[in-house]
Design a protein around this nucleic acid. Structure first.
Length: 622
DNA sequence: CTTAGGG
DNA sequence: CCCTAAG
């Protein structure tokens, strides 16, 4: 169900972009290879030492988005093609196609995101989709080849024979590495001499090519959890490049490389590596510099031996584009090339962590109060505690930097900010979005701080100047009004005691409670969305969850009260309207009835279907 | 998104 | 009320 939900979402996105609907698989392949090729060229052209970030400009981001859509499509289409079909395609061609593809994917993922031009180009020209790529002609490679002895031109030819495409790269080293990788279908570029027999590659000295499966991958440094390590990108590359697709599919979590030698299976390894998602790109700007630094440092302390390390010579490059977002990339020495790779500390496909939201607590009295989990002060809302301490909770989004630099002001007055609970370290958020949209959606541009207080009473005007404590000049702090900023005094709620509290909480009125009870009686407890829709249509601020919560509280109250109908009430009469006993009674009744009904449903399940409203408890009136 | 349940 | 898991 979840999947369907997500699917529907992504479908929408796809459909939104009409251009991206390739017709045939072959076209897809072509497009794909062009895509890849294009990207290759791009970062080849780039100066190894250069630190240009291209993610920032709008054009490119949209380009990337489209590009992503396209590739997502490509991917799914490829999947549809199925192993057999794919395999068949491969067998038409020469065995070395697999290495070729693999190599390309390698490039693709490694360099993703840095070239707006490529994506723009792709998007712009349907016409440019005519492919320059020819099929790899492995047969041209015969006998002994020693890359070290080849001229640039020869290298170019070898390159073409290997990959089926031209290259303009003049860099011998690069060419050698590429060819080497392509030929061996591995990341082992230490070998530059090859002997080709019958279209089959044999290392010099007649040593069989072993596809680096056994050695190199295993030699990956044990840096914590692979998936969480900053090298995950690279690791995944290795992984995807090495482990046959079939095995990966069957064992998503497969973390060893017990791949088979099956050649057939091997070819399927040509499956493309999953491209970083859009979210991934977005997160580039949210990478915690601290963490990255730490991890990278750590990484640097684990120098590689054995195969040429893909992770060596790593350093951080920070780009601060115009829009103020900080893009951290890693200048990765990839095969001797300075390739700028987005520096990601972990690959997380789930929902963005909320590290960077903070709870801002506004204290009406001007005294700083512990601003930590405000929620803890929230109690049973059947009888809302009139604690006066409850403060309006605002959420603000920060860039990671600011969060890191943020200090709580111990004596802070007016406002304090703290990180949301679990802000750090919880990486297991469910899929994208969530309720956060309810509150935060509207505000994504951190640039402007708009202080907008709605319904702030006179008494509080003095506090309407926000003071961000310990945040830098660049502090991008945003106040978000709660969703219900429409009608009444929203953010603040006057207290009978004369105090004023800003709170999220909206006290339940008697009529609301009544409605709820009635709703439950009609539709049954649990049909919260129904009740919400039918009975609370006009109460935009009550969500189905609210209803459920309230019902729970009512239930609790009703059960707690009835046994001994005395004493304990007084304490709760603090400030909130007590729920009239009759209503509580009804609640309990309903609860009991529904419990009974449940039994009925189990035995005579037919009794309910068409006549839900006619059931006895449905006739209750209020 | 909706429900259920814990916090 | 918030959050999360699960469907």
């Amino acid at each position: 169900m979840n999947l369907r939900w997500l699917m529907s979402l992504s479908n929408l996105q796809l459909e939104g972009d009409g251009r991206i609907v390739p017709a045939t698989d072959d076209e897809l392949m072509e497009v794909e290879s062009l895509l890849i090729d294009d990207k290759c060229q791009m970062h080849i052209v780039a100066d190894p030492g250069q630190t240009v970030g291209c993610i920032s400009n709008e054009g490119s981001s949209s380009g990337i988005a489209q590009l992503e859509s396209l590739e997502g499509l490509l991917q799914s289409r490829n999947k549809e093609a199925g192993p057999d079909k794919l395999n068949a395609r491969l067998e038409e061609t020469v065995p070395s196609l697999a290495p070729s593809l693999s190599e390309s994917h390698f490039n693709q993922s490694g360099s993703f995101g840095e070239c707006s031009h490529s994506s723009d180009k792709l998007v712009a020209g349907g016409s440019t989709l005519s492919v320059v790529t020819t099929k790899p002609d492995f047969s041209k490679l015969k006998g002994e080849i020693c890359l070290d002895n080849l001229s640039i031109k020869e290298l170019h030819e070898t390159f073409k024979a290997t990959f089926g495409r031209e290259t303009t790269v003049k860099d011998k080293q690069w060419l050698k590495r590429r060819i080497s990788m392509g030929l061996t279908n591995s990341c082992d570029v230490s070998v530059t001499s090859f002997i080709i027999k019958d279209n089959k590659l044999v290392k010099k000295g007649n040593e069989e090519i072993s596809n680096c499966m056994d050695g190199s991958y295993a030699e990956d440094p044990p840096i914590g959890n692979r998936k969480d390590s900053p090298t995950s990108l690279v690791s995944q590359l290795d992984y995807h490049q090495v482990v046959p697709e079939k095995i990966r599919l069957e064992n998503p979590n497969l973390d060893d490389n017990s791949g088979s030698d099956d050649h057939q299976t091997e070819q399927r390894a040509a499956k493309r590596v999953r491209k970083p998602t859009k979210r991934y790109i977005e997160e580039l700007s949210e990478v915690e510099s601290k963490e990255s630094n730490g991890r990278l440092m750590n990484l640097a302390k684990n120098p590689e031996h054995g195969l040429i390390s893909l992770k060596s010579h790593v350093r951080l490059v920070r780009n601060v584009p115009l829009d103020g977002r900080t893009v951290v990339t890693r200048l990765d020495s990839l095969g001797g090339y300075g390739i700028q790779v987005p520096c990601v500390s972990r690959v997380r496909r789930s929902r963005p962590r909320k590290n960077f939201m903070a709870l801002l607590k506004f204290n009406p009295s001007g005294m700083g109060m512990g601003a930590t989990l405000v929620k803890k002060s929230l109690g049973d809302h059947s009888f809302p505690p009139d604690d006066g301490k409850e403060s309006r909770v605002l959420k603000a989004s920060f860039t990671p930097e600011h969060v890191h630099h943020q200090k709580l002001n111990p004596s802070g007055m007016g406002m304090e900010a703290t990180l949301v609970k679990k802000a750090l370290g919880d990486h297991s958020f469910p899929p994208d979005d969530g309720k956060e949209s309810r509150v935060l959606k509207a505000s994504s541009t951190p640039e402007h701080v708009h202080h907008k207080f709605i319904g702030v009473p006179e008494k509080d005007k003095q506090f309407s100047v926000m003071r961000a404590i310990g945040l830098g000049h660049n502090t991008e702090l945003k106040c978000i009004n709660s969703s219900r900023d429409s009608d009444d005094n929203v953010v603040t709620v006057p207290t009978p005691k004369g105090g004023i509290r800003r709170k999220h909480h909206r006290a339940w009125t008697l009529s609301e409670v009544t409605k709820l009870v009635e709703g439950v009686s009609r539709y049954g407890a649990g049909r919260w969305s129904e009740i919400k829709r039918l009975a609370f249509a006009s109460y935009s601020y009550r969500t189905s969850v609210d209803l459920k919560d309230k019902w729970r509280n009512l239930l609790k109250a009703s059960l707690a009260q009835t046994p001994q109908d005395n004493g304990m009430n007084s304490r709760k009469s603090t400030g909130a309207m007590p729920i009239p006993a009759p209503i509580l009674l009804k609640v309990r009744e309903l609860a009991e009835m529904q419990a009974q009904v449940y039994k009925l449903l189990i035995t005579h399940d037919a009794s309910l279907d068409s006549s839900g409203l006619l059931l006895p408890w449905g006739l209750c009136s209020y």
